[in-house]
Computed example of a mutant assay.
Amino acid sequence: MFYKTALATSVMMLSAGLAQAEESYRIGITQNNVGVDSYQTTYESAFEEAAEKQGNVDIVVLDAGGDVARQIGQMQDLIQQNVDAIIIWPTNGQAVIPAIRQAHKAGIPVVVTNSKIAEAGMEYIASFSGPDNVQQGASSAEMMCEALDGEGQIVQIAGQPGYTTAMERSQGFEERLAEACPGIELVETQPADWNREKAQRVMENFLTKYDDIDGVYAGDDNMGVGALNAAKSADRADEIVFIGATNFAVGYEAIERGEYYGSIYQSPVDDAEAALQTALDVLSGEDVPKMNFFETPKITADNLAEFEKPVF
């Protein structure tokens, strides 16, 4: 009798296990602005590949094109579709909160990817998956301190105004700079919206305005290389230290050439895979941390060989 009961229990457990293994999920993602840079383009491809490898994940991939209203509409559409989970790369960390709250009320877990939302919306999300942008800014400040031996005059080229990633990187950089090397003066900050051509124009204006610029901190390498190009055209690149974040291929190559001091290594492939896995972990009932940060180390000429050249 015990044998039959144990056998029946084993069969039931096996059947349950197979059912769980075969369970499929429908996950929607609304991205910030795929066309703005190669990081987001690579992220999208990596996300689609990761979902395909899972075998049991059906995805709905949407792009807000940098438009908050469009992203809110996409969130509402995914809620109407009754997807199992929503991943959002927020266009604006404050404005998307009502749509996230709506998903939460509908019983759909939301995972925020790459860029955090405002604190007021954190209670409505299942988890955040992405880099610690404040720490990235702090790490860039430490590299600036090292490169300038704690003294100098610098400018900052920030990302998109109002965008959480841009604000956090600037915050981390400025706070750590003031703490670690008060002898370095940040004379001005201007945004360039993650765009290389805009960053080049911003840097051209800085070069006209300031006779002495010892360093440039850019919120990502796309903008950092735009600033580098402006300085090279003005024949002033040799006198300036360039430090960025989110190491793009162009930044990696500039470090190789000795024209760019350092950056923060961040993979869009890791970013996309982590977001999808976080959503799947939430759906499977695992205990998922509220803040899921992945590592983003400093990268300079000293350790460049330890990292693969980015594909974006």
Score class of each variant (00 low, 15 high):
171 Q>E: 14
229 N>F: 04
148 L>V: 10
161 P>K: 11
175 E>K: 12
221 D>K: 06
133 N>M: 03
235 D>W: 03
220 D>C: 11
204 E>L: 07
199 A>R: 04
134 V>A: 09
178 A>R: 12
140 S>Y: 03
224 G>H: 05
223 M>S: 06
198 K>Y: 02
205 N>W: 07
237 A>S: 15
230 A>D: 02
160 Q>I: 14
225 V>W: 01
166 A>R: 03
139 S>G: 00
163 Y>G: 00
231 A>T: 06
137 G>E: 06
165 T>A: 15
177 L>P: 03
238 D>L: 10
220 D>L: 04
209 K>P: 02
137 G>C: 09
140 S>K: 01
162 G>K: 10
167 M>D: 11
178 A>C: 07
181 C>Q: 10
221 D>T: 10
232 K>V: 14
173 F>I: 08
226 G>Q: 04
194 W>S: 04
186 L>P: 04
140 S>R: 00
142 E>Y: 10
164 T>I: 12
229 N>V: 00
134 V>W: 03
140 S>L: 06
204 E>P: 00
185 E>K: 13
225 V>D: 01
158 A>S: 15
203 M>S: 07
150 G>C: 10
151 E>D: 12
171 Q>K: 13
184 I>R: 01
166 A>Q: 04
223 M>L: 09
194 W>L: 07
204 E>Y: 05
211 D>W: 08
